[in-house]
Design a binder for these strands. Structure first.
Lengths: 232, 232
DNA sequence: GCTTATTGTCTCATTTTATGACAATAATCC
DNA sequence: GGATTATTGTCATAAAATGAGACAATAAGC
C-alpha cells in the first residue's frame, strides 16, 4: 500500500498475495505486521485506474521481495460482502496518524483478487510497506491470526498450489536454478505435506523428461555426491 | 443487465457467465445478441454494493435460464486495461435509446469476474435480458465473434471445465438426474473433445463408488436395455 | 584402506489401465 | 416362436504404472 495518496485507484477492489518460499525444509509465506497494531496481514495493494490487475500484483510482489519475473498466478477473487473490516482498517490508519477523509474509502467494502507467488527463498530481501513495521516468513502451519479473511485466502492458495504442483510442474520456482533430486523431493513433500518414496519419485521425475542433468554437487559429506538438475 | 437504473453498483466491476449445456451430442453455451447491433456477448451483469459477487452471478444465471441451484464456479478475473470497449457499449446503449449521462459509467474500464455454470439443458428456458433481443445455444466450436474479450473468457472457462471434470466429478450437472452410462460417457467425450473407451470408462466410473444404479431404461431399441444411474 | 551415509539404478511384486472377447438381453423380422 | 441385430454388462488377458526393497557406487572421515 505504498504511495496511497494522490493516486487514482479502482474503487472497492484490491489484491492480496500469498508469497510462498521454501527454506530447505519448510514451506513458508510472507506476512506483514502493521505498525503498533498487532495486526497481521498478507501483502497486498490497490489497482490504479490505468493498470492491469496482474501488473499491480506483479509490482506489489516486487516491492515486498525485490524480485522481478516471479511465478505469479491469480487464483480467486474473494467477493463476500462481509469482507469489509472497517475496525481493523481504522486501527491501521489511526496508528499511522492518518485520519484524513481522503483515505476513508479504505473503510468500504472491498473485493480482493488473490494471487500466489512462488519465489526462490534465497534471493529475497523482504521489505515492509509504508504502513507496516515488519515483514517476515511464517511456516504455513504456524501462521498468526491474520486480519479479515486472509487466513482463508492462504488456505485457498495452498489448495490451488497443491493441485497445480504436479500438473503444471511449478515446483522449480521455489528452488534455485540448480538443485538436487532430494531438494526437489523435499519441495514436493513440504507442499503436499506428505512423505514420498525416494525411488518412485526419482523415477517419475526422470521419466517426465523435464530435467537436465548437470555436474555433481560435492557437499563435503561422507557419501556419494548427488547430481544437480535444472528444469529444461 | 436488468434494471440498471437507480441501482448502486460496485464501479468498474462486472461478471460474465459461460453457461454450459449438453444437448445429448454437443457441448453448448448460451449467447446473447444485443438488439439491432449484431453484437454477441456472454450473459453478465453488475454487482450491487451490498451484494456478494457470487450472489450477483447466481441471480444472473437465474434470470437467463430460470434455474435455481445451478452448479456455478468462479474461475478467473479478467483485469486487463484493454478490456474497456466504449465503442461496442455505446452502440448497445444507443440502440436502446439510452444516451443518459447516468449510464455513461458503463463506458469505463471494467474488470470482469468469470463464472461457468453447468446446467441441465432440458430444464432451461433461455430468456434475453433487457438490452438483448435474443439468447440461444451455440456449440462451442461454432461460436460467433463475441464482443470484447468474451471469446477469450469462453476459452479459459473451457480449459478450467476440462481440468475439473474428472477431478471434481461435476459432469452430472450437465445431465438429468437419471442417466445411462452411455450418456455420461458422451458428456465426458463432448467436454474433453476426445473419444473414450467404453469398457475402461464404465469400469472407472463404477469403481469410483459415486453412482447409484436404478431400473433399466427401455428405449424401444433392438438390444439390451441399459441401466440408469444417478449420482450419490 | 576401512567405515559411513546417501545416491543412482535394478528387480520383482502389486496395482491400475488397455484391449479384446463374450454372453445376456430387447426389439424386429420372418 | 425362433432367428437376427445392436448394444450392454462383465470378464480375461496383456500392457503399463507404481510400490517396495536390494545393491553396488561413491565422497569424505578415521
Amino acid at each position: 500500500m505504498k504511495g496511497l495518496k494522490n493516486k487514482n485507484f479502482i474503487p472497492n477492489l484490491s489484491f492480496d498475495c500469498v508469497i510462498f518460499g521454501f527454506n530447505g525444509k519448510l514451506l513458508k509465506i510472507l506476512i506483514l505486521e502493521y505498525q503498533n497494531t498487532g495486526v497481521y496481514a498478507l501483502p497486498g495493494g490497490f489497482i490504479e485506474i490505468d493498470q492491469s490487475i496482474d501488473d499491480a500484483a506483479k509490482q506489489g510482489v516486487k516491492e515486498r521481495t525485490g524480485l522481478d519475473n516471479v511465478y505469479l498466478d491469480q487464483f480467486y477473487i474473494f467477493g463476500n460482502v462481509e469482507r469489509a473490516d472497517p475496525d481493523h482498517m481504522k486501527r491501521i490508519l489511526t496508528a499511522n496518524n492518518d485520519n484524513t477523509k481522503e483515505n476513508s474509502w479504505m473503510l468500504e467494502r472491498f473485493n480482493t483478487v488473490g494471487y500466489y507467488a512462488l519465489i526462490n527463498y534465497e534471493e529475497v530481501s523482504p521489505t515492509p510497506d509504508e504502513y507496516s513495521d515488519s515483514i517476515g516468513w511464517y511456516a504455513i502451519d504456524e501462521l498468526p491470526k491474520l486480519m479479515m479473511d486472509h487466513n482463508n485466502i492462504v488456505e485457498k492458495a495452498l489448495q490451488v498450489l497443491r493441485s497445480n504442483l504436479s500438473e503444471k510442474l511449478i515446483g522449480m520456482n521455489l528452488l534455485p536454478s540448480k538443485f538436487t533430486m532430494k531438494q526437489l523431493q523435499m519441495v514436493f513433500e513440504a507442499v503436499l505435506d506428505q512423505k514420498l518414496r525416494r525411488t518412485t519419485f526419482q523415477r517419475k521425475m526422470l521419466s517426465l523428461d523435464i530435467l537436465e542433468r548437470h555436474e555433481k554437487l560435492f557437499q563435503g559429506k561422507a557419501h556419494k555426491a548427488p547430481y544437480q538438475y535444472s528444469f529444461k
